[in-house]
């Protein structure tokens, strides 16, 4: 990251001839066109939330006639509010659990003299290879047997269990690269493992923990398969599932559906822009030197 501003691999050092100008113009034009293709559909989505049905069925490129928030307010009151609160709860709770458990595990795998460590490493990281789709049928009855079907806990536990391998992978990599000088000094001072974890290792891992949290939020906020199968009814459904049910129950009241989609897209885009720096640094650290 520190070298960022120093790299300009494709920029010709000299000889700015006509061809270079043309190709540069072409490149910029290409980037702008691509940018329009990426952003315009999203703007269209937000604008459609301001239209009424007749306008939606009219010219799709037209701007809305009025800027009434009615559809947004309606969408918010007719379910989106509930879906957002369930999604928030599930995302925050599973995010906390995942990061805590992963940090513990990574600590155990890098800082202790645990016997059979390679076995444990293989077991935890092997979970990376297993996909949720494969587990879904048996999980249906398992969740019912545990009395967790249609509760927040089902999703919190599953999101944690399926994300711990990946987060552990990241945090463990980071811990392996951390210097042990501070640990050793603390051991000399008679600190216990627990104290070392909470006071030294965890604070040092802050950057990677933040990246893990962001990646987890992206995952949990958007997860669909488990959410669709393990929750039913308003009050237990997360946003992605809620959106499809809004779509199914609103007939052709498309304006409200567009408004609901826009509302559910916004928070995560805002989170990304706010935490962009951490996010990129985390990825950068993870990719290796």
């Amino acid at each position: 990251m520190t070298k960022l501003s120093a790299i300009r691999p494709l920029r010709p050092a000299s000889r700015m001839n006509v061809w270079a100008v043309i190709s540069k113009t072409f490149l910029h034009a290409f980037l702008i066109c691509l940018g329009i293709v990426v952003i315009y559909p999203l703007i269209w989505m937000a604008l459609n939330g301001f239209k009424n049905n007749a306008q939606i069925f009219g010219n799709p490129f037209a701007l809305p006639i009025g800027w009434s928030w009615a559809n947004y307010v309606q969408a918010w009151n007719q379910g989106v509010r509930d879906y957002v609160s369930v999604s928030l709860l599930v995302t925050v709770a599973s995010g906390l659990c995942t990061v805590l458990v992963s940090a513990w595990t990574a600590f155990g795998l890098t800082r202790t003299k645990m016997p059979a460590k390679p076995l444990v490493v293989g077991f935890v990281l092997g979970g990376l290879m297993l996909s949720p789709t494969v587990a879904v049928i048996p999980l249906v009855r398992m969740m019912q047997a545990l009395g967790l079907y249609n509760t927040y806990w089902a999703l919190i536990i599953l999101y944690t269990a399926f994300r711990v391998p990946f987060s552990t992978f990241l945090i463990r990599a980071y811990m392996l690269d951390l210097s042990r000088d501070l640990d050793e000094a603390a051991v000399m001072d008679g600190a216990s493992e627990g104290q070392i974890f909470w006071r030294i290792t965890l604070p040092l891992c802050r950057p990677i923990v933040v990246s893990c949290v962001i990646l987890h939020v992206l995952f949990a906020w958007n997860e669909y398969l488990f959410a669709m199968i393990f929750s039913s009814g308003v009050g237990a459904q997360t946003l992605p599932v809620g959106l499809t049910s809004i779509m199914a129950t609103h007939g052709t009241n498309y304006a409200e559906v567009f408004a609901a989609m826009t509302i559910s897209a916004l928070p995560i885009v805002i989170v990304f822009f706010a935490a962009q720096r951490y996010f990129i640094r985390g990825l950068s650290d993870g990719i290796g030197k």
Partner: peptide, 19 residues
């Protein structure tokens, strides 16, 4: 020191491997 990994091992074993 197994206590550090116990929660992860149980969670993953129970909800990822077993299903």
């Amino acid at each position: 020191s197994f206590r550090w990994v116990a929660v992860a091992v149980i969670l993953i074993g129970w909800f990822v491997y077993y299903p």
